[in-house]
Amino acid sequence: MSEFLQLVFSGLTVGAVYALVALGFTLVYNASDVINFAQGDFVMIGGMGTVFLAAAGFSLPLATLIAILAAVVVGLLLHRLAVEPARGASPVTLIMITIGASIFIKGVAQLVFDKQFHSLPPFSGADPISIGGASFLPQSLWVIGGTLAILIALWLFLEKTLLGKALLATAANRLAALLVGINVRVVLALAFAVSAAIGAVAGILVTPITLTRYDVGTLFALKGFAAAMVGGMGHPVGAVAGGLLIGLMEAFGAGYVSSTYKDAVAFVMILVVLFAMPQGLFGRRSLERV
């Protein structure tokens, strides 16, 4: 039992980060049909930005705030300079543009920051908490709690604010949204900005546990993309479920079976899910109901 619990904690912590990255993929995809492979790099910007700002003498809260803003600016620039000019290009071309952007961001990051691994102090101490024979770090609670908070905030934003409703409307039908007077361009930029902010927050929450470096984004992008697909592309709840599921499966796989093929778990799962349910676990675009 204690082993099972240990694996659950491990899986939920890692899975929560996958979920946040998947959420970012989903937001951008819904608004613009673009799969943004630079999504993982927002995670890096959040973590590395905070590390370097803190080292430069900023207080931790201020450093996190600036790092999130920096990620948002990068997200907006990405939309304005790379995605928007390529409007109407094929999906493959759009994927390649964001991959190019990801290479570019990493290339700049290794110049601005460095190529070393970095860590942040845990938000509330490093003494493990013990429950039922399993022990986990207080930071895990921050990660899981932070994910929940972001989910709730995002839900409130999408359902309760005019801007959020405009985003949903654009996702459902761009032409109709235009017709009812929604400024689609602004809405798309908003989607990039919000997804960048979510990625950066994920990076800040998880850096005290997983460490960070200029190139950690690739792995997060791959796993996050996988999570979004498993859940059913375009479905926010599906993205979170997919992320947690992949995190848990990886932990159980490594704990009960073998750690050799841990990184394959996400992709084997994708293949299985897609063969059984070609539209992912949560069907296609339930957002269309709006």
Partner: peptide, 14 residues
């Protein structure tokens, strides 16, 4: 090198 490579890929695609 890395930054320029990424930039060139983007520019060509766009």
């Amino acid at each position: 090198e890395q930054a320029v490579l990424g930039l060139l890929i983007m520019v060509f695609m766009i």
